[in-house]
């Protein structure tokens, strides 16, 4: 899937079983969260489902291709590269444990559910919305785009943001970042007729 190097603990079989001792479990939980965050950052995974598959990954423009390739995996019922399955040591994490990890991540603001009802997948905040916001603001200022109207597409796909960390950012995550800027009174969102966010003016 990528050049991401899993930490050593990933090849440690007990890591894939929920530890009965509460303290050990907390440490294990934290390790899992760190692993998920660093893995998603390295692969730019925006959405992770509870099978450990990246439902949305990399540059969002190539989304269609990645989804089709992933859906095949889903049909098989067995993920090839799911993060919660380690074929090398023949271990997999139980769905219930995964859900607990997700719950903790949502609590920590490391992730948020796609919808309130659907808790099978989460958006991963491998950067916090505040961090994304700072990156975007810095980019706006360094490229002299203060006060101009930008479309969401321009921020995530424009030529000017080509080498930026947020190039190809998922629109939903971009929205959370922009909302941070709105709260700081640094941005104003523009909506289209359907009430969807179409553009943003950042000062």
């Amino acid at each position: 899937m990528s050049q991401y190097k899993f930490p050593q603990i990933y090849n440690f079989p007990p890591f894939f079983t929920k530890q009965p001792n509460e303290q050990t479990w907390q440490a294990q939980l934290n390790n899992w969260i760190q692993l998920i965050l660093s893995y998603c950052k390295a692969n730019k995974v925006w959405i992770l489902n509870n099978k450990g598959e990246a439902l949305s990954q990399g540059n969002i423009e190539d989304l269609e291709e990645s989804i089709t390739s992933l859906s095949i995996n889903q049909d098989d019922g067995i993920s090839k590269d799911g993060i919660f399955v380690n074929n090398k040591i023949q271990r997999r994490l139980e769905p219930q444990v995964i859900n607990e990890i997700f719950q903790q991540m949502v609590k920590n603001n490391d992730a948020f559910y796609i919808t309130k009802k659907d808790q099978s997948s989460v958006f991963i905040n491998f950067y916090r919305p505040e961090d994304w916001a700072s990156m975007i603001l810095e980019w706006i200022e360094s490229t002299g785009q203060n006060g101009t109207v930008l479309t969401m597409y321009e921020i995530s796909q424009g030529d000017l943001s080509l080498n930026k960390e947020f190039h190809g950012i998922h629109p939903v995550i971009l929205e959370t970042a922009l909302n941070v800027l709105v709260k700081r009174s640094r941005a104003q969102l523009l909506k289209d007729e359907d009430g969807k966010i179409a553009g943003v003016k950042i000062v």
Partner: peptide, 15 residues
């Protein structure tokens, strides 16, 4: 918060 002018809206449409 920054104000949206008519020009902004026009530019946004074009964009």
């Amino acid at each position: 918060s920054p104000k949206i002018t008519a020009q902004d809206k026009a530019i946004l449409q074009v964009k």
